[in-house]
Amino acid sequence: GRNPLLGPYLAYVAALLLATLASVDPRLSLWGRRVAPHGLATSMAQVAFFLLAAEALTDAVQVARVGPAIVAGTVPVALYGVVQQVGLDPIPWRLSPVWRPFSTMGSSLFLGAYLAMALPFTLAGLARASAPADTLRYGAVLALQALTLVLTRARSGWIGGLAGTLIFLHYLRRHGRLRKAGPLAGAVTLAGGLALLWMMLAVPDAPLAALSRAREGVGSFLSALRLASIPDRLAIWGGTLAIMPGHWLLGYGPDTYASVFPGRCPPAFASRLAPGAALFDPHNVLLNHLFSAGLVGLGAFLVLLATAARVAAAALGRAPEGEAGAIRAAAACSALAYVVYLQLNPDAVTLAALFALDLAVLVGGATGGGPNTP
């Protein structure tokens, strides 16, 4: 069968290639920055990963294996985040004024988005679990993921995770699979919240000794949720649009934002940004594509998203066909969590790779010769 995302993905790469050729710094746009590169080479690697994964997932058995693999991969990542939160990390990282665990992801924002994208796969495993041991295992992982996600204070991850989780729970309810996953998800969320409260009050000291610092602990947690970042983002978005004239068609080139924006941002917007703010992209995926590849690149990206949304809607509309059907629906919700997150924060290579895997799961079986259903 034909891969419905192949054409849009190739058109997307072609748009990025044109933007790289017309870039204000073609070499930088080709290879990207040394730290967290997002140049053409990285984008092409993402597309290659998608194509290889879609080609490898030739039948429902292989698709069904993806979910447990993703869930298992989150366990050490989430555990390390908890270890960092309680102050037991053996590596002396340089701490920010408001400490947020980042685990192996390098940023609490990326960690939050990663866990948000994994939640639907964990719920899929929980809904399909038949043995009590499997139910307990998936329930424990779900609690760990939810707890670590809350600890990141990553609001965009929370919103993305909430969107993906609610859509997936609706999918389970619609197809009569919510009897187990729904109550358990609620119980696990409550348990995670209670565990979080205990950690804020009791770690690293004994519970009774820490109760006197309860107000301080809660205040420190809530201080990370202040709304000061909203004016910053509005200033970034406004400044980005203000420097687009003359570059509407093909943009400035992939991964050139950090070198272009500080010198060209109008003072009216620059004065509203936090002093010393390091900006590597406009903190919005649509503006980032507009800046990097112009209207051509943004249009190609929107076509890719629209095609992926159509495929995802089809996966959510079908009744589960064994475990593979639920995994495809989970992949659709995981991709939704990613896109929601990207409306407020920058991308990461790990997140983009997981998104590519989500898309490969959605079309898995369409590119190979094996059966597409169990």
Rank of each mutant, 00 (worst) to 15 (best):
L5S: 08
L6K: 00
G7E: 14
G7P: 00
A15L: 05
A19Q: 13
V24Q: 07
L28H: 03
L28R: 11
L30K: 13
L30N: 02
W31R: 14
G32W: 01
A36S: 14
F50W: 04
L51N: 04
D59V: 00
V61R: 15
A64I: 15
R65T: 07
V66W: 05
V66K: 01
G67M: 05
I70N: 03
V71I: 13
A72S: 09
T74N: 03
T74F: 08
A78Q: 08
A78I: 07
V82Q: 03
V83Y: 09
V83L: 14
Q84T: 07
Q85F: 14
V86Q: 10
G87S: 07
P90Y: 12
I91T: 13
I91G: 12
P101E: 09
S107G: 00
L109H: 15
L111V: 08
A113I: 12
L119T: 06
L119D: 06
P120M: 14
T122C: 13
A124H: 05
G125R: 01
A127H: 08
P132I: 13
D134P: 03
A140I: 03
V141L: 06
A146Y: 00
L147Q: 06
S156I: 01
I159N: 01
L162R: 00
A163F: 07
G164V: 09
T165H: 02
L169C: 03
R174P: 02
H175W: 15
R179N: 06
K180A: 12
G182M: 09
G182H: 10
G193Q: 03
L196G: 09
W198Q: 12
A202P: 09
V203D: 02
P207V: 04
A214D: 12
R215H: 07
R215K: 04
G219N: 13
A224Y: 01
R226P: 04
I230H: 06
R233T: 00
W237I: 04
G238W: 02
G239E: 09
G239C: 09
L241H: 11
G246Q: 06
L249F: 11
Y252W: 13
T256Y: 04
Y257E: 01
A258H: 09
A258T: 02
S259E: 07
S259N: 05
G263E: 11
R264Y: 05
C265F: 04
C265S: 00
A268Y: 08
F269R: 03
F269Y: 15
L273C: 03
P275L: 14
G276F: 05
D281W: 04
D281V: 05
H283F: 03
H283I: 12
V285S: 02
L287T: 06
N288V: 03
S292R: 07
G294T: 11
V296Q: 11
L298A: 11
L298K: 02
L302H: 03
L304T: 08
L304C: 11
L305Y: 05
T307Q: 04
A312P: 15
A312H: 14
A313S: 14
A314W: 12
A315E: 14
G317V: 08
A319E: 14
G322K: 15
G322N: 09
G322Y: 10
R328H: 07
A330Y: 06
C333E: 12
A335G: 13
V339R: 11
L342F: 11
Q343R: 09
A348S: 15
A352D: 10
A353D: 06
L354R: 06
L354H: 06
L357M: 08
L359C: 14
L362E: 04
A366Y: 15
G369P: 10
N372L: 14
T373C: 10
P374S: 10
